[in-house]
Every structure is written in C-alpha cells, then in structure tokens.
C-alpha cells in the first residue's frame, strides 16, 4: 500500500473536514438532485442537525444536472447556474462544504469555483477529459467506481487524475453490475482501492439500485441499506455516502433508492458506533495483515 493520503474538504468559511486520517467518519449526503432552493436549504438544515447531534463530519451533496437519467422525460435538474447559486447559499447559510457532480468537462470550472469537492459520475469514471477537468478544478475529487469497473482498474483513473495534477481523491464504491439490472457490492473493493493510499467511500443508496429495472426508471432495494452500511463501516471505509430525501416517493430523482430522512439518524448513529469500535479495535490489536 502506498502512503496514506490525508487532506481537507472545504475552503473559505465553511467547516473544514479532514479525511484520510482515520479519526472521524465523514458523511456525504443530500437529495440526489437539487429540486429547488427551499428544498435544498430545508434538507441541508435537517441533515446538519442530525450530523451535529451525532458529531459526524458532513458534506452536503446535491447535483444540478443529472445527465444519466433513464429517460429524457425524467427530471434532469435546475441547471448549472441556478444549481450552483443554491449550493453557494447552502455553504453560506450553514457553513457546510458542498459537492456536486459534473457530466460535461465544460461544467467543471464553474462547479469547482463554488463547490468544495467535485464528483466524477460512475459512468464517466474512465473518461480522460472528465478526469482532466476534475483535476484542474484543484478541489478534492469524489471519484465513483464505474459499475462496470474492477476495483483494481480504478488505479488507472487515479493515475490519470494524478497526471493532470490532482492529488486529493476519494474512491467510492457504488456497486458492480451483476448481470443485467442488478448491482452487488464486492467488499474487497475497499481494501483494493485503498492500496492507492487514497481514502475510500461507500455509496449505500446507489449500491442498492437496480439500474433501469423499471424499464424507463431504476428500481432499488432500500431495505438492504442498513445491512450494507454496517458491513462497509466495519470493513474500514473513510466516508459514507447516502442520498437522502424527506419524501422519497415524490423525489424528482432516484425515488426508488434515496433514503427517507426519518431513518437517517438511526443509520448514522450505528455507522458512528461501528466506526469508533473499529478504531478502538485497531488501536488495541493493530491492523491484521495476512500474507
């Protein structure tokens, strides 16, 4: 394993979050898409109060343009100008670092100027122009592992980002295709991706997605979220990612996978408990390296 990389998420006046030092769990979450200003601010406030109560570091996530929806009839987003202005308001009002993805290289600069972290969508994780654009924002990059990618081949994407000057990367697993319309999690992906030295993240709500299983929309098996979250935290991740909504049935994006906020506190409390227990175990017994 290469040296562990530690870096901060957050610029300006927001709460700066350290990742990679294995001290505190980082939660990255929010509604899949920015639906409107009031909803974004409402969700940010709600999630912030839960994470503050639990003493979990929080990065607010929401996207302004969902380019990967199953149908052209699906809601795509509020657009880059309005979306970034809403995210900027979330930052200023709640002192929260924010992250959004970008699906077109030309959107990267503006996204990086506002957001504390930029996200590379899973389907685009090996596109050189996207990775170059992400690196040039000079912000930390949340790099999703493509559902079609092996965890070891993500090292190529990391190398691409590094070759363009990026050196703050979080590698996230959001499931791997298991035949058609189905994803599974290979829990080996975390130690394999961690061999890069970069922090690793588990995206629970996309992992339970059943891609385009509904014909023109993706389904999901939300009931497995708590099981998978507990497994991934015990495994040794640095960050947990979950999309959260106050009314999943009427969510404008990913209605079948987003987590109802009424479950968030319980799940995050369990996640923190397991994260801290694992830390204690490591300090007591050390890491187990099997040759």
């Amino acid at each position: 394993m290469l040296d562990q990389k530690i870096f901060n998420i957050g610029y300006g006046n927001v709460n700066k979050i350290t990742i990679g030092d294995k001290k505190e769990l980082v939660f990255i979450g929010g509604p899949c898409a920015i639906e409107n200003r009031d909803h974004a601010l409402f969700m940010a406030e709600k999630i912030k109060s839960i994470t503050e109560k639990l003493k979990i570091n929080f990065v607010y996530k929401s996207c302004y343009d969902k380019d990967c929806r199953s149908s052209t009839d699906s809601f795509r987003g509020v657009g880059i100008d309005e979306g970034l202005s809403i995210l900027s308001e979330v930052r200023n009002q709640f002192d929260l670092p924010v992250v959004s993805d970008f699906s077109d290289p030309s959107w990267a600069k503006m996204t990086g100027e506002v957001c504390d972290m930029v996200q590379v969508p899973a389907y685009l994780c090996r596109q050189t122009t996207i990775l170059e654009a992400a690196a040039k924002t000079k912000r930390p990059i949340l790099l999703k592992k493509g559902q079609f990618m092996s965890p070891w081949n993500m090292k190529n994407s990391v190398n691409k980002i590094e070759s363009f000057g990026g050196n703050e990367i979080i590698l996230a697993d959001r499931g791997t295709f298991f035949g058609y319309n189905m994803l599974v999690n290979d829990m080996k992906s975390f130690p394999i991706m961690a061999e890069t030295g970069y922090p690793v993240c588990y995206d629970a709500t996309h992992s339970i997605q059943m891609p385009t299983s509904g014909g023109n929309i993706s389904g999901g098996e939300r009931e497995f979220i708590p099981f998978l979250v507990r497994s991934s935290i015990a495994n040794g991740i640095d960050a947990l990612f979950m999309e959260v909504h106050d009314d999943p049935k009427n969510a404008l994006s990913d209605p079948n996978t987003v987590l109802d906020i009424k479950y968030l506190e319980n799940i995050l409390a369990q996640a923190k408990f397991i994260y801290d227990a694992k830390k204690e175990l490591y300090s007591k017994y050390g890491d187990i390296k099997i040759e």
Partner: peptide, 10 residues
Amino acid sequence: RPLPSYFMDN
C-alpha cells in the same frame, strides 16, 4: 486472484 488484478498490483 484474476490476472488483471495481479497486473494492477503496486
């Protein structure tokens, strides 16, 4: 392990 995984080892 699968050979592609072995190839990608440091």
